[in-house]
Write a protein that binds this DNA or RNA. Structure first.
Lengths: 345, 345
DNA sequence: CTGAAAGCGCTAACAT
DNA sequence: ATGTTAGCGCTTTCAG
């Protein structure tokens, strides 16, 4: 079960040269004669020589690997970002080692250690729902490990960050619901410590405020990984002053809402309208066709990777960091169609 | 921007020992005194020593990496298999390098070369739609590289394979459609050279045959990556003897069908029933709620990885290979509800 | 223009 | 029980 590969030594021996000459010839060094170069290159080609990246890594003390930590691979949004990460990394000669936190801090910390032990050249991170303290990233960053955060970022650390315009997405969604006549808009959202949660909540509040609608805490529900979303959604739509719209922050929340609404026998959008953050291709074919806030997931992966590689390859320490904010889009579909209510705006 | 790690040499110097003693102490060799062991272990712990896996790989001439080639990461089924691959590989001390063929043979071949150049210890492969010739895998296998195929496998090579019971899934789906009264069942499916395409077609044919329904070529449509699915679906449901059911082999095909059906103003399942292979969590919330053939994607990834590691770690060459067939399940929903037609069965 | 030798971090055969 | 040494594949001084 051995897979024998041609080495520089093999070439040197076969051609009666030294390994250093072969090495130099292969990388086109100016100090090697044209004849020797050609000889080496042709032989290497013929023997299908492939430099051993492991030896190269050991020598250079870097792995040409990028470590990625995401909450979940089997999630539409993250698999799309990974797609972008992958494409960009390969183009630049890096490979990608993907790990999942499964929304647990412990696993996030374990992954960080594992990736560092594997000597990744840098880290691309989207935080878990449980992560409030990011000491495990800070200490590494201080020791010089390049880290870029994307999507679920932290304010507590200064580095490159890439995120979607969650504020705008939430604002557009909420404003749109208001404009179609909704007044009691509930917001089901992710764990309260996440950046995306805060940003979306602010967009939601701003839209309400701009339209002179009071903000009600009772209409905002936070969910962690364990929550029984459908139960909460059911309770919500059974309230005396039940909401006439739900703005939901993830696919898991949205589907639970749909289930609860269906079971309650309510009509969308007439009894209750629905808008969700989603990157699902099938949003259009859901029942009801889902009005969606979409994020440029692929691009986010691309940009985060480019920034990380910039950090990794920079000669001098970088100390001015930007946070890139990518545009979000509202796609209006049947789940939030016009109502026959008087318009305020 | 350097990330300095503690090495065995550092420990040896600090403790006034030789590197080999430290190395042996760290791996608990019996020839080291308890005192020395403890000394080394404690100091290593204190300094947070992490063995350099790159050096280990160079020494052992193996990377502890598993290469994965899938058509597409941002695809429900494959991201679920990757999840399973990942979990199993990490548990066994391997990391995973994922690449995508994007349904192109050229990219598949390029990925293989890339992964081999990176010295992966083995390969986990699901073939691209364009791949009919698998010479690029055979030659590597002959040179001793462990390869396991999953989902989209090939008959032309002898090794471990893991697949879903596509025959059964297709049989159940077709039979179910027949039992609810459908007689003209179309089958939209993937590229004709894929194993999954053949197996599903056979299951489909067998169900028709068992129920004494003639097989019509016109009702079977194959699609590659480029095809205009919606156009073909539209043509299909405009046929004079238009189908009264569609059995579709992928999400992309299913959504195109739904779109075509919606545009034509047909009712599901009364005018036309629909069953699709899908691993989408939201299948239940599609319009119509989609009757689905589901595959155990996570498990498939797990099992394929276990088999690959078995191959990699086997002392003696393995020459008897099994093909693991995982069960598929039919989940009946509204898209294939009972019709008011006379029952044949 | 080319070769010899050292070293990246680790392990193991070979001393002692 | 511990140290010395060589070597995995490659790059890179340093010497010719």
């Amino acid at each position: 079960m051995k897979f024998e590969a041609v080495t520089i030594k093999d070439i040197a021996r076969a051609l009666g040269l030294s390994t250093s000459t072969v090495s130099r010839a292969l990388r086109g060094s100016y100090e090697i004669s044209a004849d020797t170069k050609q000889l080496v290159l042709e032989y290497a080609e013929k023997m299908n020589y492939q430099p051993n990246p492991i030896a190269k890594s050991l020598k250079e003390n870097r792995s040409w690997a990028i470590g990625v930590i995401v909450p979940e691979i089997a999630n539409n949004f993250f698999s799309q970002t990974i797609n972008g990460i992958d494409a960009t990394a390969y183009k630049r000669g890096y490979h990608v080692v993907i790990t999942q936190s499964h929304e647990s801090v412990e696993r996030e910390v374990a992954n960080v250690h594992n990736l560092v032990a594997r000597r990744v050249d840098g880290l691309l991170v989207s935080l878990s729902m449980q992560t409030s303290d990011i000491a495990h990233f800070k200490s590494l960053q201080e020791r010089g490990l390049p880290i870029v955060f994307f999507d679920r970022i932290s304010e507590d650390i200064s580095t490159f960050k890439v995120k979607a315009n969650n504020y705008k997405g939430a604002y557009l969604a909420t404003r749109h619901l208001i404009e179609t006549g909704c007044r009691r808009i509930a917001h089901l959202t992710t764990a309260s410590c996440l950046s995306i949660t805060r940003e979306r909540l602010e967009g939601y509040k701003a839209a309400l405020s701009d339209c002179h609608i009071d903000y009600h805490e009772d209409y905002v529900k936070y969910f962690n990984d364990q929550s029984d979303v459908e139960q909460v959604a059911t309770d919500l739509i059974s309230m005396p002053e039940k909401p006439d719209a739900i703005f939901s922050a993830s696919d898991r929340l949205t589907t639970a809402c749909i289930a609860a609404i269906q079971k309650a026998g309510l009509q969308v959008p007439d009894d209750i309208a629905l808008v969700g953050f989603t990157n699902l291709h099938v949003a259009e074919f859901l029942n009801p066709a889902l009005t969606a806030v979409t994020q440029p997931a692929y691009e986010m992966g691309q940009i985060a990777t480019e920034l990380l590689i910039k950090l990794i390859e920079s000669k001098k320490p970088i100390d001015t960091f930007e946070t890139r904010i990518l545009d979000t889009t509202l796609v209006i579909r049947a789940s939030s169609g016009k109502k026959s209510l008087p318009q305020l705006l």
